[in-house]
Design a binder for these strands. Structure first.
Lengths: 226, 226
DNA sequence: TTTTCTCCGATTGTCAGACAATCTAAAAGG
DNA sequence: CCTTTTAGATTGTCTGACAATCGGAGAAAA
C-alpha cells in the first residue's frame, strides 16, 4: 500500500517539507484556502488519517498546529472544526493588523541604512509576478508572503513569533474572499500605494495606505458577505 | 505504579485541567517560571515522560504547545530547548506589547457603556491581593492574568488569539526577572497609574502609562541583565 | 405527546512498544 | 591535527489497543 515511507514525504507537498506532519498541515491548509473545507465543517482524525495515508498520531499533531494558527477550533473531547469568523472578528483582525503593520513600519523607517527596503522591494516584485496567477492558492500565498516579508524586513523578532497566528486568521478570513472575489485591480493599487509609501520613507502616507489596506478592505469584505 | 489514571489527572495540577497534556504544560511552564528550567536548557522527551509519568506522545503534544507559545524552541530532529531571548528580543517584545495594549485601550474606551471597566477594576483588585504573595509563581500568574483581563475587557477576539504567544514571550522574558527582582513598589505604582488612567477614561494618560509599563520596564530589565 | 433517563456507538485522549530517519559525538584512519 | 566512519542517542512515525467522554437513539415516566 505504502511503497516507501521516505518517498511519500517528498511527494506529499510541492514544497519539500521536513516532516510528515508539516506535509499534512500544508495540505489541510490548502483545502481550507481553496474551499474544499468550509468554515464550520467538522474534522475527524480517523477520516483524515485514512485519506492522507498517515497515522492518527501525525494527524493529531497537524491538527494541533492548525488550531494554534486559529484556522481550526477545538473543544476537548468534542472534536475539531474549521473556524468560522464573524463579521466582528474580521473587523477586529483588521484593527490588529493595522497596529502591527504600523509597528513594522516604525521599525522599518528607523534604520534606513539597512537593506531592509530592498528586501521589501524584492518581495513586491515577487508579489506582482504571482498576483494574477491562475491558481487562487498561489495568489493567496503570494499575498501572505508579501506581508510576511515586510514584517521580516522590520527585524522585529516578536512580530515573527506572532505571525503564524495572524496569518492563520488572515487565511481563514480571506478564504471566503477567494469565492466572493473582489476587484483585483483595487487590490493591486492598494498594495502598490503601500509599497511606494514605504520605499519613499513617507511615514504618513504609508500609515494611510496601511489603514486603507486593512480596515478598508475588511469593511469591504464584510459588506460583500453581509 | 499508576493507581488510577483518572485520579492522576486530578492531582496533576492545582487547577484542574481537562486533559493530561494540559497538566504537563502547566508543570513545565511552572518549572520555567520558577527557574527550575533555565534558558537554553535542552529537554528530551524520554526524560520528561519518565519524570512526569506520562507517555511520550502526551509529552510531545505538550512540548508542541509550549513551542507555539514561544516558551520553547524547536529544530526538527535536533530537539527542544528553553528559549533564551536576547536583550534585543526583550525590547522588541516591549514595543509589540505597547502596540497591542494601545489597541486594547482604544477598544476599551470606545464603548464605556459596557461593563468592561468594572471588569478591569475587578482584575485590579485580584492583582493587588496577590501582588505581594510569597510565592513568585503566584505573583507572576497574577501579573499575566491582570493584563489578560484588560485584553478580555477590550472585547477584541483577535487579541485573545494572539494572547498565548505574547504571554509566553512575557513569561520567558520575566523568568529572569524573578531572580533579578526589581523594585516591587515601582511595579505597583506603574500598574496603578495604568489602571487609574483606564478607569478615568483619560486616553493620553493611559497611553503614557502603557509606555512606561512596557518600554520603560523592559529597558530597566535589560539594564539589570546587561 | 412530551419529557426525562439510560444505554450504546462514535470519537477523542492516552498508553505501550516498535522501527525508521536523523543528529551527535566518539573512534578510526590518513 | 584533521577528516571520515561508525555507533549511540533522540526524534519522527506507525500500529494496535484501551479509557474517557460526547451525542443521540430508544425506553420509561409524566
Amino acid at each position: 500500500m505504502a511503497e516507501s515511507k521516505t518517498a511519500m514525504i517528498d511527494t506529499a507537498t510541492s514544497a519539500r517539507s521536513l516532516t510528515r506532519k508539516d506535509g499534512v498541515v500544508v495540505k489541510i491548509r490548502r483545502w481550507i484556502i481553496t474551499g474544499v473545507l468550509l468554515p464550520g465543517q467538522k474534522l475527524t482524525e480517523l477520516d483524515l488519517a485514512k485519506n492522507l495515508e498517515v497515522s492518527r498520531q501525525t494527524i493529531r499533531e497537524a491538527l494541533a498546529q492548525l488550531t494554534r494558527e486559529s484556522l481550526l477550533v477545538q473543544e476537548p473531547f468534542k472534536g475539531i472544526k474549521v473556524a468560522e469568523p464573524s463579521a466582528q472578528d474580521i473587523m477586529d483582525l483588521a484593527l490588529l493588523r493595522e497596529s502591527l503593520d504600523l509597528l513594522a513600519l516604525d521599525q522599518l523607517l528607523k534604520d534606513v541604512t539597512q537593506d531592509s527596503l530592498s528586501h521589501v522591494a524584492q518581495a513586491w516584485t515577487v508579489f506582482e509576478a504571482l498576483e494574477n496567477d491562475a491558481d487562487p492558492l498561489a495568489r493567496h500565498q503570494a499575498h501572505i508572503a508579501f506581508h510576511h516579508a515586510i514584517w521580516e524586513a522590520s527585524r522585529s523578532s516578536t512580530l515573527l513569533h506572532v505571525a503564524p497566528v495572524v496569518e492563520g486568521l488572515m487565511t481563514i478570513a480571506l478564504a471566503r474572499d477567494l469565492q466572493v472575489r473582489q476587484d483585483p485591480k483595487r487590490e493591486h493599487s492598494i498594495h502598490q500605494k503601500y509599497v511606494h509609501a514605504i520605499l519613499s520613507g513617507d511615514h504618513a502616507r504609508a500609515a494611510q495606505a496601511i489603514h486603507e489596506h486593512t480596515v478598508g478592505s475588511a469593511s469591504e469584505l464584510v459588506r460583500l458577505l453581509g
